[in-house]
Simulated assay, not measured.
Amino acid sequence: MKQIPMTVRGAEQLKQELEHLKNIRRPEIIKAIAEAREHGDLKENAEYHAAREQQGFCEGRIQEIESKLSNCQIIDVTKLSNNGKVVFGATVVLLNVDTDEEVTYQIVGDDEADIKQGLISVNSPIARGLVAKEVDDIVKIQTPGGIIEFEIIEVKYK
């Protein structure tokens, strides 16, 4: 199986979610199933069926997280020597050549991506266009609105 790149922060968030699901959510669901069973006939018992459905979702998510964590490659960008190249985990400050607008993105794994937080997936068109480039390079990125030219102003490994 292919290794999934992940930042240290992304792996930590998944570990916290996994711990919450196993130690808090799973016992809550088991308790809800036990209480619903006490209400009698399980065929007509909506609470029982809802709790069993939640249990299925919870167990599925636990398996998904465990799989991701066992197949991830945690990359700590702060331990890399900053040679000015855009790599996974780097934070890149870009200047839109047409609008003079500055944007900052960190290149992260798929699970961590959140455009509102400036976190873009390594598999996104912008990240693919930036990786291996360096400061002062001009990159042309195909976006839904057309091609946008960016100048790489700064690359941070933080």
Rank of each mutant, 00 (worst) to 15 (best):
71 N>K: 08
115 I>R: 10
135 V>M: 03
77 V>M: 03
76 D>H: 02
120 I>T: 02
64 E>I: 04
97 V>S: 04
67 S>F: 08
92 V>W: 02
34 A>P: 11
72 C>V: 10
153 I>T: 08
123 N>D: 11
101 E>V: 11
18 L>G: 00
34 A>F: 08
40 G>P: 08
114 D>W: 03
113 A>H: 13
51 A>P: 05
112 E>G: 09
92 V>M: 00
57 F>P: 09
140 K>S: 08
81 S>E: 09
100 D>A: 10
136 D>T: 08
41 D>M: 03
2 K>F: 03
83 N>G: 11
118 G>F: 06
46 A>C: 11
32 A>N: 14
3 Q>L: 12
101 E>P: 10
124 S>D: 10
157 Y>N: 07
84 G>M: 06
57 F>G: 12
140 K>W: 13
124 S>M: 07
32 A>T: 06
41 D>H: 01
58 C>I: 06
150 F>S: 04
136 D>P: 04
19 E>P: 10
56 G>S: 14
136 D>V: 04
57 F>L: 12
61 R>K: 06
152 I>A: 05
10 G>A: 03
124 S>P: 11
155 V>Q: 03
18 L>F: 00
98 D>R: 06
26 R>K: 15
4 I>W: 05
17 E>C: 00
62 I>P: 02
91 T>A: 04
65 I>N: 03
56 G>Y: 12
72 C>L: 10
91 T>D: 13
43 K>N: 15
64 E>F: 07
124 S>F: 10
155 V>A: 02
56 G>C: 08
29 I>S: 00
156 K>W: 11
11 A>D: 08
55 Q>V: 06
141 I>F: 03
54 Q>H: 05
75 I>T: 14
102 E>Q: 13
29 I>L: 01
39 H>G: 15
117 Q>V: 15
64 E>G: 10
38 E>Q: 11
32 A>W: 00
94 L>Y: 05
15 K>R: 13
2 K>G: 06
140 K>G: 09
93 V>H: 12
117 Q>T: 15
141 I>R: 12
73 Q>V: 14
128 R>W: 09
20 H>V: 03
52 R>H: 08
